[in-house]
């Protein structure tokens, strides 16, 4: 039961993270610059545990697509357990801490993980309040817009099916 609940939560947060990245592309210049520097077709896969939710995203035609599956992601990350993923996606552990705790393995180039880490740190900076980010981020990023705007746009995006 606990495991099922953790998987459900992780699955929802993964969708929110993708949505937040899509919105932050319009709202935050650092996210925009990061994506604009990515090669066309750059892709990430994230496996969050055994039989647990997965995320496949690809940068293509100026948009971050959320795909059902990708055969050969350029960078494939695998978190070592559902419990770890749950802690990561509920603001209990940041990406640097996950690295320090050997929480994931990765196939691909480390430079691509660093790019993703910068994006995830920004997303966390917007989505989580300061009392959480001060524990999980090495440095709290300056916010360029009010986080409520990000939440508002994400909500709107889900309601209008923008991420499907």
């Amino acid at each position: 039961m606990k495991l099922a609940l953790q998987k459900l939560t992780v699955g929802i947060v993964l969708r929110v993270v993708h949505a937040a990245l899509v919105e932050l592309y319009a709202l935050d210049s650092r996210v925009r610059d990061e994506f604009n520097r990515m090669p066309e077709g750059m892709s990430y896969a994230l496996q969050t545990g055994f039989n647990a939710p997965q995320l496949f995203v690809q940068w293509k035609d100026g948009k971050l697509h959320n795909l059902k599956h990708l055969d050969k992601p350029v960078c494939a990350l695998r978190l070592k357990s559902t419990g770890i993923s749950f802690r990561m996606f509920t603001g209990q552990m940041g990406l640097a801490q996950a690295y320090a705790q050997h929480a994931f393995s990765m196939q691909g180039e480390i430079a691509d993980v660093m790019k993703l880490a910068r994006l995830v740190n920004l997303v966390e900076g917007y989505l989580f309040p300061k009392f959480i980010t001060k524990h999980i981020l090495t440095d709290i990023p300056a916010l360029q817009v009010n986080p409520l705007r990000v939440y508002g746009r994400v909500l709107c995006g889900f309601l209008t099916g923008r991420y499907n």
Partner: peptide, 13 residues
Amino acid sequence: AVNDGALIVNPRA
């Protein structure tokens, strides 16, 4: 440098 893995656990970003 910012894409080098060694930076991820530096005590200051």
